[in-house]
Design a protein around this nucleic acid. Structure first.
Lengths: 227, 227, 227, 227
DNA sequence: GATGAATGAGAATTCATTCAT
DNA sequence: TATGAATGAATTCTCATTCAT
């Protein structure tokens, strides 16, 4: 049943779109009220997993927190994964700003400033959306295709941008993509993880970690691999 | 009846040990048969999550796969987390070999070989136990204390070892620990993750990634941070 | 508000009629648009159960298929049974033509032609409305009073007509009604059922079955019961 | 999950059999207690639909009636259809006795007695299991494959048996199978249906109907189709 | 040591139905 | 007339867990 809708469902996000109008899971055009409800559910879902693991997040919990019923939840989302994906999708839009830094020219003169700006803005976005992006990575790492594909699409431009910077600064580097990937991977994980968890109590601060990341990028861009 | 034994329960692993004899959750000494059953359950649990997420792993699944009943499962483990922790614990023993490389002297002459050996052996262990270690990190990242503490204990020596190598090779580096952490973090994630997932189809191989990791360590140890 | 109208509700069909004007469930006179919508809902409901069982037909399904909302559904019908009954009612009107054949005289000379015409026209109507009539019988067989009463009213004349034919042709037959009922029952079921289902793949065609029915009627009318 | 079991599941009945041992839906061998519970659930399910339609029979109802929990229900059956099918299967075994009459020789001399015995025993079994067999037919008529196949298997021998009798008694009959099917169809429906529903209040009794059926069989076997 | 059997508790999900616009 | 929106009330279904044998 409701098969007719199937063809309109967006492959990745699972939302149903007709032209510019957003439909809910019942196939109704969402009006103002509907959009507000949908948003509230998303927000409350995020809130609930800010602290605890999202593994045990239940539809009932979210509905309760959003002051509504589980039935209403199902009007807007098919299941918990569906809300979370919507959150991730939304958070992802903030990542666009990062491409600005990568679209400018990085020269030996401004390299330091550029790297610093890049790392800072990347880490800032992550901190703001650490919950969403941790979900994205966890699901993607576990092989969840929807999230995997999304992450691919979302990081491709950044990674390619960085690859070009390295290739430009170190034309002899054999494998700029791999090098970039290693550092990018580290950034992502450090940004999302509770970094306290990594060395125990007190020796590390986020500031220090961010500085270390910048230093490593600089090493790569300025000194280059050991040939 | 179990209460008397409580004092003997190992804080971390939750297993009950009396002297050298392992007891099951009923407080019985495990004979050969018991140990075999216990091992089989662990193996099957791992097998089941090799592909799919362990979030939906159920006691019934594991018991079924191990050709036994759920009741039997509870003779050896208190719950799913308990088996997984046991698996992680066991896998961790293989990591000991890594300290060998770190306990030797790294000079400018053998640096290349040492780094290569270190990265290779680290990545090898991970590949062998990627499931277990992914669980460890995921749980730890999510704040699960049992796994967090375990990871701390298990990585402390390695990280400190690396910190010393960097400090020795680059005495002027301001923050060897942070630098080490960044690269170490990258290694862990790349080792555990399905690296294919990171750039899409085909441009990357594990070999290239490992090489990139080595190059970055070499950069850090030989050229040092950009002052 | 609806209470005043209650006295006008038709006992059987449940529709609300005022003189010749059809009202919807809100007590509004239905204009052209309303009638069209009502009809569309009926058609789509039928379509949906053509293949699958009507046990799981939902208001949402029907509304969706009719390109409207469930709220609109409730403007025209009180529930699913209500639409189905309306469909059955409508289909029933086609059965009137059958009485024509029965109202003519059946003699030994034209018996063959009359029986043939009767069976053919009966089976034709059924084939056209097999869905509706299957519903009617299923509900009636299960004791649903509304449908039971309706079936009684709808088949009484036909059965009595046949009884008279048999009584006339075989004055000595002890129990013409029972004999008629047996064959009539068979006709109804064979007409409605997917006759393929009865003997497996291929040995039977509808044509052959219809011929067999005719032969049995002829046996009864011409040769009469065994003594 | 539980996929391994799939290969052992019986295509038609859905029950899981290993050699001679019956397994429940959890894959456990059923002991005495289990078999009793399973049987009790089946009985109560039947009881509940004796009067009312089985369309609205719920798992909760059945479990409650059987003095157990819904969880227990799911240990033995996958859903309501599953219990009902098990009931039908069981009832079907009583039909075997009917073949006895068909396996004997029907001559012109004993025809009357044979037909009478056949119809009586058939109708008796049906009366005893009218609920089960009504379910069987209803589901089969609606295209439910599991029940359709089962009915086919279950009626094939009887129908073929009757076909042979007719062919033997009336060698010139063009289409014994069709003729048999018509009368057989009528029998099945009349046996299962609430025959009262067919002509209104009082003119018919089961006895009269059975007699009419016998007469029609006799007509077919003795007098044969009209030339 | 092993395992049938049973179940409480809770989570997911569905659907008819109402109401305000 | 039509339809978004919201929801109560069931119902289905799953699982960890316990107990007796």
């Amino acid at each position: 049943m409701l098969q007719k809708l199937a063809s309109l469902v967006c492959g990745i996000c699972g939302d149903i779109r007709v032209e510019k109008t957003l439909l809910n899971k019942h196939g109704q055009k969402m009006g103002r009220k509907g959009l507000v409800m949908r948003k509230r559910i998303m927000e409350k879902a995020l809130e609930l997993i800010r602290d605890s693991s999202y593994k045990d997040l239940t539809v009932a919990d979210v509905a309760y927190e959003a002051d509504t019923s589980t039935s209403t939840f199902y009007v807007y989302f098919t299941d918990i994964e569906d809300v979370l994906f919507a959150c991730v999708e939304e958070a992802d839009q903030d990542l666009n700003s990062i491409m600005d830094v990568l679209n400018r020219e990085w020269t030996m003169d401004n390299m330091d400033a550029m790297v610093s700006e890049f790392v800072d803005s990347y880490m800032n976005v992550w901190e703001k959306h650490s919950v969403e992006l941790r979900i994205r990575n966890q699901e993607a790492d576990q092989g969840n295709l929807r999230f995997l594909q999304f992450r691919l699409d979302s990081t491709r431009d950044i990674i390619e941008g960085l690859e070009k910077k390295v290739a430009a600064a170190q034309p002899h580097a054999k494998n700029p993509l791999s090098l970039v990937l290693v550092l990018f991977t580290a950034m992502e994980r450090l940004a999302g993880a509770n970094f306290r968890a990594m060395t125990g109590p007190t020796r590390i601060t986020r500031k220090k970690l961010n500085d270390a990341i910048k230093e490593l990028w600089m090493m790569l861009l300025v000194k280059g691999p050991s040939e």
